[in-house]
Design a protein around this nucleic acid. Structure first.
Lengths: 326, 326
DNA sequence: GTGAAAGCGCTAACAA
DNA sequence: TTGTTAGCGCTTTCAC
């Protein structure tokens, strides 16, 4: 039988209010504290979070809504979020929206009645309408309105860096390969930053923008790459896309970094111990997770206003670009 | 202001008990049902899970304890677990134990007072001592005692298949590359199955077993591979290890599948859409997740006895083994 | 500094 | 079939 606060109070010969005070770190007489702690120990008492939550309307739980945990970028993000939350005594609800706006909203609804203290979300649909303003919400990589906090990597800067690094390595015919989503998102900024630096340097830049969700990727990629053999530098919207491009190029008998150079985006790693897969613009995922949790905590604990956090990115020299000449 | 059951009862002009019945699907008069539903709609009423949990001692929440979500195998597993649980109206607590027995136990403790309905765990320490027998627990890939359910892939079979496939492809000097953990686990069976098939066929088999946690992997791998140049077939304990072996072999100027052949284990994919990385023994992760959730549900809902589930594995022909001659 | 008591929103037993 | 009511285990006034 699980011990309750009443049992503890009885054994320690105090009132339940006093036990509650001890649990919550409210000052009591040293002697009383001792007695209560001994009783807690003896009975292996653990406060019931549900009874507590019913009273206080707090749950020490954050919901994390992701497109899918089955992707190294989101998995790493979730890893860091969990790590920081657990350090602060918070639990994590994991929610895979699975690319469906419907499931995103279902989760929002579910999570509301689950009494979570806040939501951290990488979401693609128009979620802001469903967020009540009193539930702290931190959006990753997506800017809604002034009412909603967001944390994002500096995508525009990333595009700029990618262009500059390719140019510095001798590329003179650049291209961008990405997708267009029905929902506005930050990846457009990657393209814009890239494009502008190309223009400033008078470098021609071709663009392949595929409509998402992307069907028959290879059938779109192959003719584009075949018809534009002059391309010697590629920036792709993310690392996975870059892997696909590399695969198609291999079929065409071209190999990076000798025959062309390519830079991805994200800085995906298969696990903590493994390295980046290719040359890429690295998003500092751990920092983003830290910023998200800090922002969340500020909103929950100090009732602070929503914040906007933009975090710089950096270039990682992998095996798909040449060493830079100095 | 959030609506409570009392508000709904008042608006519908019924008692709270009736509202509760409607919510819980207990039969009431059609007319009454209508009235209550209209009031629920009108007030946008959502039952408070905490009040409900306090009363019923159920939470509709399962804890998933993993070494780390930041690994494609665990991420895929978590993905499928979440998917199936959410379909059944359950929520998922994500817990990264991070390779520490301490953190595993902390989570067990935390989760107990969080009133989860059950725990699904891929754990490495001696967790069984801390599991009270009344909390449903499903262990993945690890067999504790008769009191505890487990779901595992058929690791022994996987080892056998790996040996047979290598032999069928003309390999005559095999080796196994893996690690030894201080905690007993199922990977030993992979090795045993492999080893036995080699013996039965009179094929010599070298073994490199590194002590976990593995330090300076390359410094152990390189001399072993260099000193045993006759090796033409390798089975490694998992896909990541295989990638490391492939990396070192590349340095030594040897390439799969022409210079040697290698088979991994796990069937890791970077994401749902992407393919397996190498030739490998595929664990049917989705099936394992399904079996785990089904077992959990049977224990929670029907109070069934613990179960033992072993699921077959299969070979995937990737680019690190030759086509089989027929 | 501490105990007594009200009540958070719900379920389930009981009575009608 | 339905309404009334007693708590689930805790926090938090309010007196003392």
């Amino acid at each position: 039988m699980k011990a309750t606060m009443k049992d503890v109070a009885a054994l320690a010969e105090v009132g339940v209010g006093t036990v509650s005070r001890v649990i919550n770190g409210v000052k009591v007489k040293d002697k009383t504290y001792e007695k209560v702690m001994r009783a807690i120990e003896e009975l292996d008492y653990k406060p019931d979070e549900y009874a507590r939550g019913l009273k206080t309307n707090r749950s020490n739980t954050i919901a994390l809504i992701l497109p899918t945990i089955w992707h190294p970028f989101f998995a790493e993000f979730a890893y860091h979020i969990e790590e920081r939350l657990s350090r602060k005594g918070y639990r994590l609800f994991l929610c895979n929206a699975d690319g469906s706006a419907e499931k995103e909203n279902e989760y929002i609804e579910m999570v509301k009645q689950s009494k979570v203290d806040g939501i951290i979300g990488i979401t693609y649909s128009d979620i802001d309408k469903y967020i009540s303003s009193d539930l702290p919400f931190v959006s990753i990589d997506r800017h809604f309105s002034e009412q909603i906090s967001y944390v994002t990597a500096d995508n525009y800067l990333g595009g700029q860096i990618a262009a500059q690094e390719l140019i510095d390595r001798g590329c003179r015919n650049l291209c961008y390969i990405g997708g267009v989503s029905p929902f506005p998102n930050e990846t457009n900024n990657r393209k814009a930053g890239y494009y502008n630096v190309c223009k400033e340097n008078g470098i021609p830049v071709k663009v392949l923008d595929m409509v998402e969700p992307i069907q028959e990727l290879e059938q779109q990629l192959e003719p584009f790459l075949k018809n534009n053999p002059e391309i010697d530098g590629i920036f792709s919207v993310n690392d996975f896309m870059a892997l696909d491009v590399i695969g198609v190029m291999k079929k065409l008998g071209r190999k990076a970094p000798d025959d062309y150079q390519i830079i991805g985006f994200d800085g995906v790693k298969l696990s903590k111990e493994r390295d980046y897969l290719i040359s890429t613009i690295v998003q500092p995922i751990e920092e983003m997770a830290r910023a998200s949790v800090d922002t969340m905590m500020a909103m929950i604990l100090k009732k602070e206003e929503p914040k906007r956090v933009v975090i710089p990115v950096s270039f990682y020299q992998g095996e798909t670009t040449k060493e830079k000449n100095r």
